[in-house]
Write a protein that binds this DNA or RNA. Structure first.
Lengths: 122, 122
DNA sequence: ACCATAGGGGATAAAATTATCCATAGGTGA
DNA sequence: TCACCTATGGATAATTTTATCCCCTATGGT
C-alpha cells in the first residue's frame, strides 16, 4: 500500500469497505483467522499461492484498520498471534457470504472465467 | 481486463467472488442498476469520479459474467439498458451488506484511512 | 559451520488495473 | 457547418498492487 495519487471518494460506503477488504489475500486472512489459524506461519501454510512477504504486509494493513489485533509473545523463537477485533467480527458475515456465493455458483463461474481468459489469450 | 500471467486459484469461493466483483466500479454499477439507473450515460452521471471508458469496460465484463443483461434498442440516438440477471440478483445482498457496513462504520474508517495516507505521504 | 525455525521488512521488478486521449456512427438543433 | 447526444472501443500512459530476492533477529539441532 503506497500513497495514492488519485484520492478515494469516501462518501460511499462501498468505497470504504472495498478499501479495507481490497487486498488480494485480506478476505482469506480474515476468514482463516476466524477459524482459529492465528499465527503468520500457519496462515501462510493455510493459504496456498501466497508469500509471507505479502501476507505480513496485508496483516499489517488489517491491523492498521483495526480489523485485527496483534499479540506478540516475547519468546524465542518469536510467536505472534492475530485475532479479530470487535470491528473485525462485524466484517465476517460479508466474507462468509462472499465465500458461499462463490461456492454456490462454482460451476457456472469457473466456466465463464475460463472462457474469458481464453478469449484474451495471445 | 487483460490476460493474467499469474493464474487464479479457483478452488476458493472467495477468489471467484472477488474476480467477479473486483473492479473499481463494479459493485457501484450493480448497485445503481438495481436502483433503476440502467443506461450507461445515466450511470456515468450517477457515479462521480468515473469515466465512461472504464464504466463501459466494466459493464462489458459484468455482462460476460452473466451478472448483467444488455438490451440494445436499435434507435437513434442509440439506447442501451443494462439489467440484473437472476445471477446478478443473487449478488445484491453482498453488495448491500458491504455498503451498510461502510456507512455504519464511516466515522472510524474515515479517520483510519486518512491517518494511514498521511503516514505514507512524501 | 550450516541449516531450520519464527516474524519482519527494504529494494526493486513485474504484473494488473485505470486514466487519458481520440475516433467511430448517425441523427438533431442552432 | 459546427456542436452535441448516444454508445463503444483502440492505443498508450500512469497508477496501483504483487512478486521476487535478499537480509536481519536469536536459538537449537546435526
Amino acid at each position: 500500500m503506497y500513497e495514492k495519487k488519485i484520492p478515494l471518494l469516501l462518501e460511499c460506503g462501498l468505497t470504504m469497505t472495498k478499501e479495507v477488504l481490497g487486498g488480494k489475500w485480506k478476505t482469506s486472512l480474515i476468514y482463516a483467522i476466524s477459524e482459529g489459524i492465528l499465527r503468520p506461519s500457519d496462515l501462510q501454510r493455510a493459504i496456498p499461492g501466497s508469500t509471507k512477504r505479502v501476507l505480513s504486509q496485508q496483516l499489517k494493513e488489517l491491523e492498521e484498520f483495526h480489523i485485527l489485533n496483534k499479540k506478540i509473545y516475547h519468546q524465542l523463537p518469536p510467536k505472534v498471534e492475530y485475532t479479530l477485533t470487535e470491528l473485525g467480527e462485524t466484517v465476517l458475515p460479508i466474507i462468509k457470504m462472499m465465500n458461499q456465493w462463490g461456492e454456490h455458483n462454482r460451476i457456472p463461474l469457473e466456466t465463464m472465467i475460463k472462457s474469458r481468459s481464453e478469449s484474451r489469450a495471445v
